[in-house]
Design a protein around this nucleic acid. Sequence first.
DNA 1: ATTACTCTCTGATAATTATCATAGCAGGTT
DNA 2: AACCTGCTATGATAATTATCAGAGAGTAAT
Lengths: 240, 240
Amino acid sequence: MRVNETRVNRAMGNTSCTCEYCQLKNIFFAHVKSDELTNICDLKVERSFSKGESIIQEGDPITEFVYMKKGLVKLSKATIDGKDQIISFSKPFDFVSLLSVFSSTQYKYSVTAIEQTTVCILQLDVVRKYAEENALFAMDMMSNISQMTDKIIHDSLEIKRKHLKGRIAHVLLYFSDYIYKKDEFELPISRREIAEYIGMTTENVIRTLSEFRKDEIIKIFGKDILIADKKRLKNISEFG
Amino acid sequence: MRVNETRVNRAMGNTSCTCEYCQLKNIFFAHVKSDELTNICDLKVERSFSKGESIIQEGDPITEFVYMKKGLVKLSKATIDGKDQIISFSKPFDFVSLLSVFSSTQYKYSVTAIEQTTVCILQLDVVRKYAEENALFAMDMMSNISQMTDKIIHDSLEIKRKHLKGRIAHVLLYFSDYIYKKDEFELPISRREIAEYIGMTTENVIRTLSEFRKDEIIKIFGKDILIADKKRLKNISEFG
DNA sequence: ATTACTCTCTGATAATTATCATAGCAGGTT
DNA sequence: AACCTGCTATGATAATTATCAGAGAGTAAT
């Protein structure tokens, strides 16, 4: 991680060992023995980031293994012409390091909190040691990587084949159905960031949202979105 | 794999054990002991496919582990409206199963030979057994998955941020620099397939290639392409 | 209070890309 | 031969999307 003046809790360390109830044990560490888990729990460092704070910076050496405990982050990459492209979003209990950790020594993307976020951090060599000694754990990691990249590739194909309206519908349904699981939610990102995700201009994102509002498919109150006609939105996402 | 009347060599099995010089030993099976490798070599089945033949069909149950020994394939996915989207291309010594094998029980994409292709096939449970018993091998697989998905995601972002001309330039440079490593080559895919890869219409692919020809950036003889001005092509790929 | 931001929003216009129509050509089939 | 079919190719036109310009609202800093 880059030295960042906005980063907080740098030295707070393991302030609250809540591993006891952490779902990671069942998901990711299912094949790690319980005494080793206690060890992992002691070694982990928990950190919090406010909305907008940088968690990982593109180019950072990969020395840590970061997983989402709470919140929401965006994975993004700077283009040659100084803009940003958003690759995907991650939520608990994704491992935001997984995309690069076994193919590179440096992060190829940045990770930024788009909601108040808590992550847990393990030293990479610790995780690597466990993986090298415990093939079942390594297999679980593989499954995790696969699921993560699978979703990224799938969404990328979906977005690619759709027109502007379909892409916006896709994004709204993504947050509504996949992230928040309700029809009314606060968009965690700006119109510009939506544009960076789906590869369109900010103006057209705004225009399309306005159009959906005029057509009474959604209601907009700033960042608050209410999906009023999900059936129509799904139809637009599929075929529009 | 689906029963396919075009598939050949179904029952040929291990007709030519050329494992002895296979590069896979150094790349993928580096941490598998040599006596186990002999076992793997005995269990593997080699199969050949002509250009156009289906190797894996979307929806097939994943029971085998397929790697590229020779040739070139496309990974593609059918869209809801009956078209195809090309995800990526794979060459020796990629593992074309890797994209799904640890995240799903069924293939989510099809694999089709776009050149005369030879693959080697291992039963998935054999590979899984080795991985479960040999964490270093599992780690090597992880690295392989990561590199493969990394490249897919990277290319997808590059294509997404470019305009039509830049995308065509990207594809030409992909085949020239990454696949064939020469300036003159035979395009292994049709204009329509290029369109399916970069998310444009066939007509515009053809038009853009014609434009490059008129601008003397490339020469075209049917499927044969000669890159005459690579510098300009690279410039278009980056900024056009 | 003023300045300087960024974000949201809208309209007018330009550029890009898709669609539709047409045609030549090659390969395969009957 | 005549008839498909798929691929390549080009032009005209329509649709989509980007760019440019401007404006209000909010927020932070001076």
